[in-house]
Design a protein around this nucleic acid. Sequence first.
DNA 1: GGATGACACATTGCATACAATGTCGGTATC
DNA 2: GATACCGACATTGTATGCAATGTGTCATCC
Lengths: 222, 222
Amino acid sequence: MATAREQAYLTLRRRLADGTYAPGSHLREEELAAQLGVSRTPVREALRRLDAEGWLRVVPNQGAFAFEWSVADIEEIFDLRALLEAHAVEHAATAPDQRGLDAMKAACELAERAFPGGDLAALEVISDANVRFHRAIWEMSGQARCRTILQSLAMPPMMLRNFRNFDAAGLRRSLDQHREMLTAIIAGNAAWAGAVMRAHVQAGRAVFLNAVVHGEAAAVAA
Amino acid sequence: MATAREQAYLTLRRRLADGTYAPGSHLREEELAAQLGVSRTPVREALRRLDAEGWLRVVPNQGAFAFEWSVADIEEIFDLRALLEAHAVEHAATAPDQRGLDAMKAACELAERAFPGGDLAALEVISDANVRFHRAIWEMSGQARCRTILQSLAMPPMMLRNFRNFDAAGLRRSLDQHREMLTAIIAGNAAWAGAVMRAHVQAGRAVFLNAVVHGEAAAVAA
DNA sequence: GGATGACACATTGCATACAATGTCGGTATC
DNA sequence: GATACCGACATTGTATGCAATGTGTCATCC
């Protein structure tokens, strides 16, 4: 088994992602420790790490509170993603490697096979394939810090759940953009790949903000 | 007095910046705790935070090791800074506020007064003023995450010491670029401000890499 | 009735003891 | 002589107890 700290970190992150903890709610160390079957020490370290990664906020002498996302937060995160994901894919296009290309291709195919079925299970698969695709780019880029930063920006709750807000046309476009990026990288055209990535992230931003405006803000909170 | 954790964090960060710990050296929890007069618990938390911020690397079951910088690391960091500092200053130029402008102006004047004397004390002042100037921009930008990321990218050792590598002309140009950014922000011209910032950071990158190539790589390590 | 202070409680901060893990040296074996 | 194994030591990982801090309530005073 992994270490208690790692287990606490992963469990808490999953719960923050799936909405177990309402935004703003107070996460008490002792309570979490009891639930996870470990002591407060690894829980404390997990909370500190989740704080650094933006999942929650630790206030000195008061404890951890599940993060409350504002529209401005979401806009900032999508903008930073557009900058950094484009930066990463431009590097990837400069020095592509076969393993990474295979991973990207596999992610594309996985998503495309699931696409026709528009149910929730299909969306799970597509969402997972999406993460794989982007992660493959981060790794191929060889930019370790950029990758670390993106990991903390792209993982938080609303990013993972955003796929539910896409309509069929939006999903189709998203998958097509993945294919286009793959083509651009194989062609070694960094400017092309970067431009598609910027469009890709901005499209996601638009879908998300549109969903928020149309009263599905609950999805943000969750 | 601040908390033990905060004190440990600040002390260790300062030591990592001033070269007390050689790159790659093993930082033992108990030893640090004894030196700082606190227990291992706050030291552990400080080490974890320094790991997240890129000052050192914590290997599970093995402990913390002072980070060893490669040329590729430095190039990546300067490139990310160029992206993110420009992003921040573009936001700042869109919505400038008087307090931030005053802080930037004060930082410019502080550096300019110290500039003619080219000794080490003057460089200290200029380096400090530089940090103040950039921090003022980050705060004015209103981009909280961008600011957090930049703080961890811009602080590490070689950033703080890079001023020693500038010649008089380079320093002069750096100060002029600060003034130009201030002018651009006051004019509300985000594109202008962003462009100057990109040039500013890339100039710093060139100076640094030049120093490394010319055998002053020791400065990197320190 | 509203404001203020003190006290009790809940919770986090820190210290310390013990357990688990990794490293390094020595020894036996091939 | 090289290598694999074993065990002692050093170090980190985790649990737990106590101290410090913050919060909410209740009584008291204005």
